[in-house]
Design a protein around this nucleic acid. Sequence first.
RNA 1: GCCCGCGUGGUGGAAUGGUAGACACAGGGGACUUAAAAUCCCCAGGCGCAAGCCGUGCCGGUUCGAGUCCGGCCGCGGGUACCA
Length: 853
Amino acid sequence: MSRYTPAEIETKWQTAWDEAETFRATRSDDKPKYYVLEMFPYPSGRIHMGHVRNYTMGDVIARYRIATGHNVLHPMGWDAFGMPAENAAMERGGHPKDWTYGNIADMRAQMKPLGLSIDWSREFATCDPEYYGQQQALFLDFLEKGLVYRKNATVNWDPVDMTVLANEQVIDGKGWRSGAPVERRELTQWFFKISEYSEELLEAIDRLDNWPDKVKLMQRNWIGKSRGLQFDWALTEPSHGHETIVVYTTRPDTLLGASFLGISPDHPLAKALEADNPDLAAFNAECRRTGTSEEELERAEKKGFDTGLKVRHPLDPTWELPVWVANFILMDYGTGAIFGCPAHDQRDLDFCRKYDLPVIDTFLAIDDPTPVEAEAFVPPKTEKVKWINHFTGIDMATGQDAIDATITQAERDGWGTGVTKYRLRDWGLSRQRYWGCPIPVVHCEACGVAPEKKENLPVRLPEDVSFDQPGNPLDRHPTWRDVPCPACGAPAKRETDTMDTFVDSSWYFARFTAPDAETPTRMEDAAYWMNVDQYIGGIEHAILHLLYSRFFARAMHICGHLPESAIEPFDALFTQGMVTHEIYVTRDEKDRPVYHLPGDIEWHESGARLGATGEAVEVIPSAKMSKSKKNVVDPSDIIERYGADTARWFVLSDSPPERDVEWTAAGADAAYKHLARVHRLATEELVDPSAENPGEDEELYRAMHRTIHDVTMGVESFGFNAAIAKLYAFTSTIARSNAGGHAKREALRTLAQLMAPMTPHLSEEVWSLLGGEGLVVDAPWPVADEAFLVDDTVTLPIQINGKRRDEIEVPKDLDKAEVEKRALATEAVQKALAGGQPRKVIVVPGRIVNVVV
RNA sequence: GCCCGCGUGGUGGAAUGGUAGACACAGGGGACUUAAAAUCCCCAGGCGCAAGCCGUGCCGGUUCGAGUCCGGCCGCGGGUACCA
């Protein structure tokens, strides 16, 4: 009997697949196509177990689809531009390009041993000039169609390093390297007009039937459609050319509770007032010192400044309200001005109390209005409340009816307009960084923005750059930057901003359909392979990446690069959880935490200890694997120790795929043992292949077809862990079975087939040991025979008042009345009834009987 | 702050509104073995001698019946537009 030797087996079968070009995808009309894609990795240096999990899931789907007769496209590439490469260049020298391509080579070498069914001939990295050149072509097409424009926007500015910082690089309002307080600075930047597609992107969500509901809900909320009232508040005295302040509100029904008008520090009026009010200028400057992220703005302490200006209430000209500048009002949303209603908004109430502004008593109420104290009254949206209607007195209405009625009245009387707004903002794509796709335009004094000519693409990144000083090296590279204008030939300057890396990942899925095309896509290939039938990736991409990709597919269609059928590029989406691990920590002499790799830990009766010193180690509950916490397991170590099949089996078996999975050494051991057992069964069963044992054979076939059915359902519905539980059970059934050799061999071959998407190498080995024809990867997926799936009798639990008390075995098709009769005859029911009659009997055929006494 | 999830034995988890804990790990017992490893078999939510009672983060609701649906909390995680 030969032992299970994954290293040998895995190399052998990977070679076989390579030689047969099993995973090379070519267009063909004799089979339905199936495009399965996992979100491509950022080449950080090493693959981690999260990658293994992501790509294994995709591989299960891909191999299952091959087996069910599909022409499968399963490509892989690299999301290769981005900040970490520049940071690496700054920290340890070298060039971002070398760092990135070196990482790609390392990670590819780590991925290949996993035995993924990938068509490596289509591989590319987004930092390949062939790829980003086509992206530049897309940009020029978008520019021509009016989908891109320039406007001013604020960025985080580090005044010491003289550089723009990402939100992630701002820590407690300070630059991560310089430690200097960050300022907001306005720059002219490029934007995609995604907001023009707000309604379209919102409405199309309804047709994404195979996306998770949570993702669709997040996208709906992100787009944030609202219906509200837009109307003017007249200033009592015009100020700096402003006669009114325009306000947008989604709660016009609370207009009679207004206490103050608030404007953003970035509102044009607020800026104009700075000129003759140094205190206000100081206040606005203070507000601008916080970062640009919404989280930071919303969590900042609410502050205000009285401008001294007054406005008249639109419904009562004698009613004057003060105008304040407030730091919580965003210029990006609505009109950058609000009215505050303290009675019905907690934030406004807090603001009024803080600055001693008048608080008008509550006027929306379920019963009788009560004066507002510390808490604002926010009525439930669906509940009718008393509502003071400024035209008809007191009405009863739900919040929405009151809002709609107010808008109708405002429009009728001409003092306001119903307006639909979206929270979604245009997508700023300019980055003041080197390691990204250059924006292919030139700035010319005479011509303004001059698009680069397509025949000059790609606009390549210069390679002779250094990262020994902060800022964008493109800005200080004269031979690259100073070029003649493509339109008039006069001396001009190249745009030195590069594109947001989200641009790179917004169309790579389309490029995979024809990675060698001399235009961004080749239409016949795009038409054949698109859409992605199954897209798999992390939930962290639920909004930005997926929304940007949906926009890009539409824009590419407008420019003739995708067919209309591909404007929703991902037919089905699955979001998987993370791989986590316990964290091991000791303390240094200053009580600072020192983290340790799982491989350095030994387990003793007294708990975890450092292998080297025996020092006791504190074990912190599982968290996402991260380098800083050292709770990482290197997939290469796992593959070397157990083989790829074990790693694959484990990441699929131990948790439902949408949830986090904790990597445990014990779990990996168990997975290995199971695979070794299957291998052992296959080698044992080589003896006496023809023996039969009729009764036992039927039992085994029954289990086999039940397993085929369950595993098929499991794979189709991403129930991998449940499918694997069935495979464990089936393996035990085979091991214990007294069936004849023929039946056992067939059962084992079927087991190999059912396991093949998860453990492809072992399955090939078992398949070939047991005389399977050809490669298991080419064998058609087994089909469950319905005749073996149904049992003649069924066991029904008997509940009394909802608690299980007994059970009866009855023929499968026994009619309800007879089931009820037999249930009532049971000892438990007779005892409970004590001679009386049941109040009610519920019979759910085939499931349960509940007797209410 | 706001939006979206998640919470079940010692552990990972299973369960179309219908027998809570499948399958697996760790644990206990046994078989085989000179012994160990490997393998195989059995036990196992908690309390209780038992009958039985309790039990899916907490509180409440809908239902004949709730882990599952609804409302309110608590805790943890993801996103929050320049991390990818």
